[in-house]
Structures are given as C-alpha cells and as structure tokens.
Design a protein around this nucleic acid. Structure first.
Lengths: 202, 202
DNA sequence: CTCCAAGTAGAATATTATTCTAGAATCCTA
DNA sequence: TAGGATTCTAGAATAATATTCTACTTGGAG
C-alpha cells in the first residue's frame, strides 16, 4: 500500500515532486518571492533534500527551464517528423507552439518569466546543448527549403523571429491577462502570417 | 561649491541616482541577486533613503519599468506625430522600436526581464494608465486606416504582435547574446515584414 | 552481512530585505 | 525672518529566508 513516494525512497519521485511544487510556487508568487520552505512543504521534501538535488533556488529554476524547453522541443520534433514541405513545416512550427502553450500555460508562463533572466544567458551545459539541438532541428528541416528557393533568402537568425515572434508576443500578453482571446483562437491567423513572412516572393 | 546633490537636498537628484544605480545592478546580476546595499553604495544613498522613496526592492523595479516604458512610448508618439499614412505608420512603429532598443539596450534588457514577471500584471495605477495610453496612441493613429480598409481586417489584439512581435523576439535573442547582428542591421527586413503582415490583401 | 553511495531531515548560520527611531534639510506660512 | 510642518536621510535593529552543516536512513553491490 505504500505510496510510490512514501518516504525516504530513492525512486526519483522526490525530485519530480520538488520540481512540480516549485513550478506552482514560482507561478503564483514569482521566483524571488517563492520560499524554499514553501516548496518543501508542498512537495513533502525537507530543505536539506531540496538542496541536495538542486544546490540553490536558482538551480531549481534552471532545471525547470531546461525541462520545459526540452518538452516543448520534443513536441515540435515529433510534429515535424510527421510532415514534409516548406509551407506545412512553417505552419507546424506555429501550431505546435500554440498547442503547447495552450496545453501547458504554467510551463509557458514560467519559461517566459526566466528566459530573459540573467542565468538563461549563462554558461549552463544542459542549456547550451538544448539550444544547439533546437537550432539543429530547425536547420535540418528547413535548410533544404532555403537551398531550393521555396523559402525566401533570409539571414537565418531572422527566420525564427519572423515565424514565431508574433505568437510569443501574443502569448505573453495573454498569459498576463492583457488579451482576452486564447491563443488557439488566432491559430490560423498566425500560421498564415508566418508563412507569408518567409515564403519566396514572386 | 556644493555639488548639486551634496547631501540631504531635496532636488530630486537622489531619486534619479537610485534608479540609475538600480538599473545597473539589476542588469549586471539580475533583480533577485542585486542587493539594496549595493544600490545604496553606488548611488550614495542610505538604505533608509531608498526605502523612503520606493518602499521595497520591487518598488524600485516597478518605478524603473514604468519609466522605461514611458520613455519608449514618448519616442514612438513623437515619431508617429511626424508622419501620416498606414504604411509609413507601421514602418515607424517598427523602426522607432529598433532605434530605441539600439540606443538604450540596458533599459530594453531590464524591461524584457520584468515584463513577464508577476508584478507587471498586478494592479499598479501608473502601469495601467501607461498601458491604456499606449493602446490609445495606437488606436488613434491606426484606427482610421482599419476603417478605410488600408489595413487588413484583423482582431485589434493581433495587430501589435504581428507588427512588433518579430522585433521583440529578435531583440531578446540579441540582448542574450544569441544573435550576433545588431537589431539595426535587420531594420528594413523587419519593417517590410511588418507591413506585409498587416496591409490589405488583394 | 557489511559497506558505500545517495538521499533525507532539521538545526545552525549567513545573508539581506525591511522596519524603526532619531535627526537634518527644506518648505511654507505668518 | 521665525517657527513649525514636512520631506528626506542615516544607520542601527529586526525579521525573513537562503544556504550550510551534521547526523541519520535507505537501498543496493559485493
């Protein structure tokens, strides 16, 4: 009858529980105001245990950030693997992001919260690797379409901003309560706009 | 020979000095890690003085945020007042933002840092007023062009994301060191894309 | 069975935000 | 200009909380 994570077990559930509690706390009060004690209370972990796993509050935030980005990227990779073509690829990029944000607003809110924070730019091995993988995914799918001329000749660094910049901007507003309509309500609009922005011009 | 802000004067210089020091500290180490003591040391203000003016660390951040947005909006308002027409208006929106970010990267970095933070959504009179003014500025300039059909029929809440979303997305990456080329290097590209995204379609 | 590494707990410590009290500068009014 | 009210400043005292430390537990390997 013992619950999977009754007490003192090494099943790894403790780590997940801490992350889940932290995501909640961070989302409710912001990272700065969230107390380690609260995270411990909600997850059933002691302070010492938390520090054993993550080293610091920033360590928790970093782990959450990497985990969120990874999940998001996995969805995108799965969706892209199922299609072929420049236009459908661009639309998939937009729609996968919209779906993910709609399904996981807490994760999205947290990621937006810290993505411009100091440590997001810092030397973090896992983060740099993830960033590299992300670039590689985009490049491997869309590279050929740039080469073939199906996509407009653009500096590569401008591709992602043009395609998903509007979605991110809208999503931030929506998550902040500044826009009433859920992201999904404008999915077609943003997908159309993304394709128009990067398709080859006559 | 007393310097303008020698000590204990009420000339307002103290408040500005605190804000300037805070912008530096926040930018270097992030808001959480920045210590009130440091801000005091850099600005020459005592801890008590800082709390008298701002009430809390979050209060300092809030004041900085509002001030930054206000300056940004003033530039935009001035530029828009000098032009007339749908296309030039959209381009002005993009270019004013690009210019401002290029000229004030510290402000931009800070604003991005906190714009998704908890207090940005909270009930702050000055902030809500500013947000309202911003909306009114956009509406008063572009409203007529929506009405005349020069701009595509769009949900109003999608207009700003489509026009400046890509710029924000690129700017965040650039400020994080993830994109080498300064924003100004892509100004024409982003302005063109913005206009294409919202112009009336044939 | 014993040992070892990983995990856990909670008290002790350190850091730092915030509050408090007193005093100095400025402003306003008569 | 005098005097009182108000704003501002300073720095010590307090409180909150992140982090460190030490001892104990658990589960697995040999």
């Amino acid at each position: 009858m013992a619950r999977a994570r009754a007490s003192g077990t090494q099943d790894g559930g403790r780590r997940e529980a801490i992350l889940a509690a932290a995501l909640q706390c961070f989302g409710e009060t912001g990272i700065e105001a969230a107390a380690i004690g609260d995270i411990g209370a909600r997850s059933g972990a002691s302070v010492g245990s938390i520090y054993h796993h993550f080293g610091s509050k920033e360590g928790i935030a970093r782990a959450l950030f990497v985990e969120g980005l990874r999940r998001n990227m996995e969805l995108l990779a799965a969706r892209l693997a199922a299609v072929r073509g420049a236009e459908v690829g661009v639309r998939t990029l937009v729609l996968a992001l919209i779906d993910w944000i709609g399904a996981h607003p807490d994760w999205a809110r947290f990621i937006y919260m810290v993505s411009s924070s100091r440590f997001a730019a810092e030397a973090d091995a896992a983060l740099r690797e993830l960033s590299r993988d992300y670039g590689a995914l985009i490049e491997s799918y869309f590279g050929p379409y740039f080469a073939s001329g199906a996509l407009r000749a653009l500096p590569r660094e401008c591709f992602a901003p043009l395609v998903i910049g509007p979605v991110h901007d809208y999503a931030r507003r929506w998550l902040n309560g500044q826009a009433p309509t859920p992201l999904a309500g404008h999915a077609a609009l943003f997908a159309d706009a993304a394709w128009e922005a990067v398709r080859a011009r006559p």
